[in-house]
Amino acid sequence: MKNVFRQGAISSDFIGESIKKHQSKTSIGAHTIFLGQVRADTINGKTVTAIEYSAYEDMANQKFHEIREAAFEKFDLTCSHIYHSIGNVEAGEICLFVFVSAPHRKVVFEAIEYLVERIKLEAPVFGKEIFEDETHVWKVNK
């Protein structure tokens, strides 16, 4: 099973490299990319400086695999990739990278939304929102 998790933030270099790798796949005519970024939310007057992600990694990787398989069945895709951070990600840094490619544009918009919504809802990933004073709260997806 592919490991979706990457230690710390997902760098723009990594994202750029990933785009570059797809240039040899010339049946592709359209890509969509979703990037989740850590927001410096203010909660009870304190500002979030980072999120520390943890996960039930075995189950999450299984779940990510299942979600990707379902997307391939539902949409005519050439490829799809998911990367999620584990550990500390500072506000403003990228914590989720979803990449969908297909011959034509229409399905990539639908597929990216499908993937991201299922990831948010079904992947056992947990996030500790850390404030400037080192206290924290646990994030819950809406």
Partner: peptide
């Protein structure tokens, strides 16, 4: 068996 609090992925 795993006890999973609300998810916060992405």
């Amino acid at each position: 068996i795993a006890l999973l609090p609300p998810f916060a992925g992405g």
